[in-house]
């Protein structure tokens, strides 16, 4: 238990620095992009010089970049994410409204790609070099090579337009008045296509990693010993080979979480899911700096927390991990 706690402490201190770098970096990047929130706004409305000046003043854009960054960091210290320019609402509310949708999408897609990917990986790795091994490896690679938006669009055309099994997009039926289990079922129905589109892309990663890991473990001495002991092939595959090959996959799970957030930007647009990724895209287009900073901050915290969880799980799975921290 102490091992996990020590790990946690070390990580938390590091995280604060990571977050600070992320915030300042994002701020500078957006500052370097030509045009500000007022430019983005008047692109759709037009307006005269007086109105533009009025807007810049009202949205605080007539202050220097340094003042705005300092103000932002000061407010952040008080856990205040500020006010969104595009939504004229507190950023905390805007993000909290969208976060569950993205978490649901990401979580389901991760579960799908990890679960199905490692299962197929075991299936393929149980008999390295067999037909099913080759078929699965090549098939998954093909899926991995497909761009996410294209896979999404093809799924929409086949399953939503032609077959009409699933809705073309959204997170739930519009103003349906559904509650409880009915609503959950409705949301699940809406999530089927986006989760598949997002999950299938990363499936290959877990499948190939599992398979490669198993291929290596097969050559280990203890597998030979297990065989000599007369264990069934099934037991060797599951309890010895697959179990040992599973460890790197857990690491991958943590690393993948950041990628998954990136991938959800595209999938959320294609399937019109009101999530964080789409919000980020809108924030960039509208040059809504505080909103984008808020989203990036929340995403960074999310990735840090997931990786921390992964490390803790890892510490339990493999006693060797964290031993150095415990000794330090």
């Amino acid at each position: 238990m102490t091992r996990a706690l020590l790990l946690l402490r070390r990580r938390l201190v590091g995280s604060v620095f990571v977050l600070l770098i992320v915030v300042i970096g994002t701020f500078l990047l957006l500052e370097a992009a030509p045009g500000d929130a007022v430019d983005a706004y008047i692109a759709s409305t037009g307006g005269d010089a007086g109105m533009i000046e009025l807007l810049r003043h009202r949205w605080g854009l007539d202050q220097s970049a340094l003042t705005r960054l300092a103000n932002y960091l000061w407010a952040l210290l008080h856990l205040d994410l500020g006010q969104s320019v595009t939504f004229s609402r507190p950023i905390r509310d805007v993000i909290l409204e969208r976060l569950p949708n993205t978490l649901l999408l990401m979580g389901s897609a991760t579960a799908l790609s990890f679960g199905l990917g490692s299962a197929l990986g075991i299936y393929a790795g149980a008999r390295p070099g067999s037909f099913r091994d080759r078929f699965l490896s090549i098939g998954s690679l093909a899926l991995y090579a497909v761009p996410g938006f294209w896979l999404g669009l093809v799924m929409i055309i086949i399953f939503a337009v032609d077959l009409r099994w699933f809705p073309i997009g959204g997170i739930e039926s519009i103003a349906s008045g559904k509650t409880g289990l009915d609503r959950a079922a409705d949301i699940a129905r809406h999530l089927v296509l986006p989760v598949r589109a997002l999950g299938f892309i990363y499936l290959a990663l877990y499948l190939r990693m599992m398979r490669a890991g198993m291929a290596e473990v097969w050559r280990q001495d203890f597998v030979l010993a297990a065989r000599a002991k007369g264990l069934s092939r099934r037991r060797i595959v599951l309890a010895h080979v697959a179990r040992n090959a599973l460890l790197p996959l857990v690491t991958m799970l943590g690393l993948q979480s950041a990628q998954m957030l990136g991938g959800s930007v595209v999938i959320e647009s294609v399937f019109s899911v009101p999530g964080l990724g789409r919000l980020a895209q809108e924030a960039v287009a509208a040059r809504d700096t505080p909103l984008l900073l808020g989203i990036i901050l929340v995403s960074a915290v999310l990735v840090i927390v997931i990786n921390l969880l992964v490390d803790i799980v890892y510490a339990f799975l493999d006693p060797r991990v964290g031993a150095s921290e415990a000794g330090a």
Binding site: I157, P167, G170, S269, V270
Partner: peptide, 20 residues
Amino acid sequence: IIYQVLPDRTSAASALEAEE
């Protein structure tokens, strides 16, 4: 009247075809 937000350029055509 419902205005359904469809951010992707291709969604409107699909949504019309799917009678959504």
